[in-house]
Amino acid sequence: MGTCMHNAVLRLENLTKRYGSVLAVDHLNLEVPPGQIFSLLGPNGAGKTTTLEMTEGLRPPDDGHVYLGNVDVIRHPAVARLRFGVQLQTSAFFELLTVRETLELFGNLYPGPLPVSDLITRMGLEEKAGARVEALSGGQRQRLALGVALVNDPEVVFLDEPSAGLDPQARRNLWDVILGLKAEGRTVVLTTHYMDEAEVLSDRLAIMDHGRVLDAGTPRELIERHLPAAMIELDPDVAIGADPSGIPGVLSIERRGEATVLVTERLEEALVSLVSWAGREGRELRGLRTRGATLEDVFLKLTGRSLRE
């Protein structure tokens, strides 16, 4: 943060939105480099949708600016809209139009739309091209929404919770499509509250909570900045207190649902002292395993709670 990217395709400056007494988005600053997948990761109510919809020119911010290249999106939304594509978190299409008709309708709203048949193939909707929207499954609707977001061959694509409500197989297919967008040189800005999704897709991500960006960077940067650490996990029934002072090298001991987690920055030293502690105390180290820190751990450290809560 703080560093200014000169080539950012999207810049959010001081973006702020209030709903009554709720500060939904709180003086938010972000820069998105071109050609990458950028994720806003945060729990429900963090302000992701509000941020995205202000960026799309759909909700007026109380304060702040959004620049797409050098276009002021809030002042000139019509210009910006030609260059980005949007999948909203809550939106719908006419139930009685077919998939093809829907794509044609939206394509006709833009100069020089992509060929509808290409979009249908790309979204894997060939079999449903002539089917009405009312007859589509949740995953097919999601793909149609994504197809509509691409009709104008956009430079930047905004996807708000693109995998919400999808089964695991459909999510994986969707991830492939999103990675394909990046391969075509488009910039993708998406929101998610799934850690695995953020990890698989993001080149860079911003962790959001309570309307603020707690930190932003590549997944690796975030982990190294906040937890240059490794984790030792034990089964939760191993009787070990919360006090790490008897085990040199271990920074903290936390109980997290299905495991007891020992955080360390010097894994070897910590393991040696853990084993000798176990010998001294006569404990069995059931379920002993080690792993590196994940985004989940970073999120926990930054917000004090787990994403799933």
Binding site: E56, L58, L82, L88, T90, A92, F93, F106, L109, Y110
Partner: peptide
């Protein structure tokens, strides 16, 4: 809302 993020 979906139409509002198009040039329409």
């Amino acid at each position: 809302r979906r139409f509002r993020v198009t040039p329409l």
